[in-house]
Design a protein around this nucleic acid. Structure first.
Length: 293
DNA sequence: TCAGACCCTCACAG
DNA sequence: ACTGTGAGGGTCT
């Protein structure tokens, strides 16, 4: 007989759970009483950090926890990843300031849809939009007694069936037609997200770029956060600021030159380096509002 | 390559 | 309190 439990202790060293869950790669995690509540697939999940481990609780007993371990990527030895970073001062600062920051491994559809909604939005706003989307279109999932309702991320089929007005009601503005059309193309099989796992990074990116509302930056986010392609290096306004300031102080590099740089300088775990730069810039630097005289 | 448009919300200045 | 303004993990034309 197999053991089913509602709780599991997952060994995890060098793992900053709050930092990772709030670092702008996933948008459905809320802090509550020193723990983090979210939904993975059809599972309501509560996570909390302990010494060298993460304690996870779900609503109903499960036997197979691989979906959670895969999401958290706890097996990855962070030290060996950080060891491949170039030994420069900016990254050194970021590593020191963001100790234990990790990359998650998310569901491709949820990640794709979420990042389509991310363009020119602040992270809190993205969280709000995704939340509304799940409440309105997601299937309810079981929650422990006493907890507020939770919903799975809505399927591509469901979102393709929604009207543009219904989507705009979720405060996503001009992103609504992008999300709707992308949902349709995924549901119809014009782009098959499962196939990207077996492709090389350039082919996988080309597939994502077929989708409306998906440009280079969002494609690279999905490649990195959902598929684990380490060659993907999303360049957003924060990372661009870091790159310009730290590595190209003289003049702005061309797009081609910048791509060459990010694909070579940061080494085999460039995607990880990107997340450290992003999180460092966003959380640890002097904010622009307070650095006025 | 280079604008400008695109929705909407929030923070902040006055 | 109330309005004006700017900007936010971009993409498309």
């Amino acid at each position: 007989m197999r053991i089913t439990e509602r709780e599991i202790i997952i060994p995890a060293t060098d793992y900053d759970l709050p930092g990772t869950l709030s670092s702008g790669q996933a948008f459905r995690w809320r802090e509550e009483h020193n723990s983090w509540i979210g939904v993975i697939g059809n599972h309501w999940v509560r996570l909390r950090s302990s010494s060298n481990s993460i304690i996870a609780e779900v609503a109903e007993p499960v036997t197979d926890w691989s979906w959670l371990v895969d999401f958290l990527q706890t097996h990855l030895e962070l030290k060996s990843v950080l060891a491949t970073f170039p030994k420069d001062e900016p990254l050194g600062n970021a590593i020191r300031a963001c100790h234990g920051l990790r990359l998650l491994r998310q569901n491709p559809w949820e990640c794709l849809a979420s990042f389509i909604l991310s363009s020119t939005k602040q992270i809190v706003q993205i969280q709000q939009i995704v939340e509304l989307l799940c409440i309105r279109f997601g299937e309810p999932v079981p929650v422990p007694p006493g907890h507020s309702p939770a919903y799975a991320f809505p399927s591509a089929m469901r979102l393709a069936a929604a009207t543009e007005a219904e989507l705009r009601d979720c405060k996503m503005g001009f992103r609504a037609p992008y999300l709707r059309e992308t949902a349709r193309m995924i549901h119809s099989g014009e782009v098959i997200l499962e196939r990207l796992y077996g492709m090389d990074v350039d082919d996988a990116r080309a597939e994502l770029l077929k989708l409306p509302g998906v440009g280079r930056k969002i494609a690279d986010c999905v490649l990195l956060f959902a598929y684990g392609f380490q060659a993907a290096f999303p360049v957003d306004v924060w990372v661009m600021k870091a790159l310009q300031h730290l590595y190209f102080p003289k003049r702005r590099p061309s797009r081609k030159r910048l791509e060459k740089f990010t694909q070579t300088y940061f080494g085999p775990n460039a995607g990880y380096a990107q997340q450290y730069l992003f999180h460092y810039m966003r959380t640890k630097q002097v904010s622009r509002r307070s650095d006025r005289p």
